[in-house]
Simulated scan of single mutants.
Amino acid sequence: MTSRYLDYSGNMDGELRMPGKDKHFQNTEDRTDSGLDSLKDEDYNRIVSGVQNLCIPVSATPQDYEPEPWKVQNNEDGDTLLHLAVIHEAKDLAEEAIRRSYRDGYYLNRQNNLYQTPLHLAIITEQAEIAEKLLQAGCDPEIRDYRGNTALHIACQRGSLRGVGVIVQYSKFQLPSLLTCYNYDGHTCLHLASNNGYLAIVEHLISLGADINAQEPCNGRTALHMAVDKQNPDLMYLLLKHGADVNKVTYQGYSPCQLTWGRENSQIQQHLLSVTEKSLQYLPESEDEDSSDSESEHSDDEYMYDDCKLMCQGLN
């Protein structure tokens, strides 16, 4: 397919025309004083030649897209040849399929029955080299699977530092969106890395601009609340070092410090007590007076959280 270019009048015939006029550039006598008169003839001719040879490729649209026969085939699970090559780690076959699909977004972004693209599968199978080639070929890193996870979500959840690095390197324009994207459980990439204790990934995401105080939509926990829940002092110190808000409360009104009561790690509790506002250091009196009521409320919160997760999935 030969490349075409638009001329100034919007025609596709490849002939350079004056703006708003249906005539060719034949001489320079009628030009306005744009500074071109001061150019030498050879410089002027070189500029005109460059403009005439300027080509703007016309991307394929769904209407005129005619894929090769092997690109439209898939099995009962919705997996294409490229999906299967990645799943079975047939590197040579995967690379050849990617090479023959360069800038073919229709094929590179095909989703199987679980809405997984080849990029999702490359991250799941720890094939950073294949993920890199997919991104170089033009796949979309923002596509989400049936759980609302982008490939970056999966890399953060699995603790794949190489996977995170590759996606970040080739997704500079999409990165702000990727960092703020919630999956269907209400987790950002930072939430997943924090919840699983992958400190290097947590720090890397923060350095890239991830919101350290982002709250889960269902209950309002931040990464710092998760550090308390997971009893992870190293994560707590890391988050505080990078400016996590110790006074941020959940939608039920609990600060990270308040969540330390009744938990074993006194190191976390003592440090949070020293940096948290006094009004947010201790549990409300009603909770201290009746622990059984507290347990009942906790169960209700869990039910509410599960219902909220289902609602989030339905909305997405």
Rank of each mutant, 00 (worst) to 15 (best):
A200V: 10
V58Q: 13
L82K: 10
C156H: 08
G186C: 07
Q269K: 15
G78Q: 08
S34V: 03
S292W: 05
M304C: 03
L239E: 03
L121V: 12
Q111H: 02
Y198A: 01
D140M: 05
E277C: 03
V58F: 11
E132Q: 14
P62G: 14
D307E: 15
L16R: 09
A200H: 11
V51Y: 06
M12W: 15
D92L: 08
L192Q: 12
T250E: 06
N183S: 07
Y102Q: 04
N213L: 05
D22P: 00
L82D: 11
P118C: 06
G138P: 08
V246N: 01
R162V: 00
P19T: 06
C139V: 14
T180Q: 13
Q313D: 03
S292L: 11
L235M: 14
T260K: 09
L315F: 07
S101I: 01
G220R: 08
Y65Q: 09
S160H: 14
C308R: 09
P217S: 04
A223C: 15
I56D: 12
S255G: 08
P118N: 05
C181R: 12
M18W: 15
L134H: 08
D77Q: 13
L224R: 08
Q127S: 12
D33R: 09
L208W: 04
I98V: 07
L205E: 06
L135S: 04
A60W: 09
E295G: 01
T150A: 06
V86Q: 07
N11K: 15
R110E: 04
N316T: 02
Y254P: 01
Q258M: 15
G209Y: 06
P19V: 11
V168H: 02
L6Q: 13
L93V: 14
G262V: 09
T125P: 02
H242P: 03
N316A: 13
A85Y: 09
N45Y: 04
M236G: 00
V246G: 00
S34H: 02
K23A: 09
V275C: 12
T2A: 13
I143C: 09
Q231H: 04
L82V: 08
L175K: 02
Q215R: 15
P69T: 01
F25C: 02
E76V: 12
N265S: 10
S3T: 11
S101Y: 01
S279A: 13
R110Q: 10
Q63M: 11
V166A: 03
T250H: 08
E142M: 12
C139P: 03
Q231D: 09
D77I: 00
Q157V: 00
L208Q: 14
A122N: 12
E15L: 14
L238F: 01
N112P: 11
C181K: 12
N149I: 00
H191V: 05
I98D: 02
I201P: 00
R103C: 05
C156T: 04
A193Q: 05
H187R: 13
T150I: 01
D13I: 11
G243V: 06
D79R: 14
Y170T: 00
H153L: 05
D301H: 10
A122P: 15
R103I: 00
K278R: 12
V86Y: 10
A244K: 08
D288K: 14
D234F: 05
T80H: 11
C55W: 02
D104H: 02
E15M: 12
V249H: 04
Y44E: 01
A131G: 13
L238Q: 09
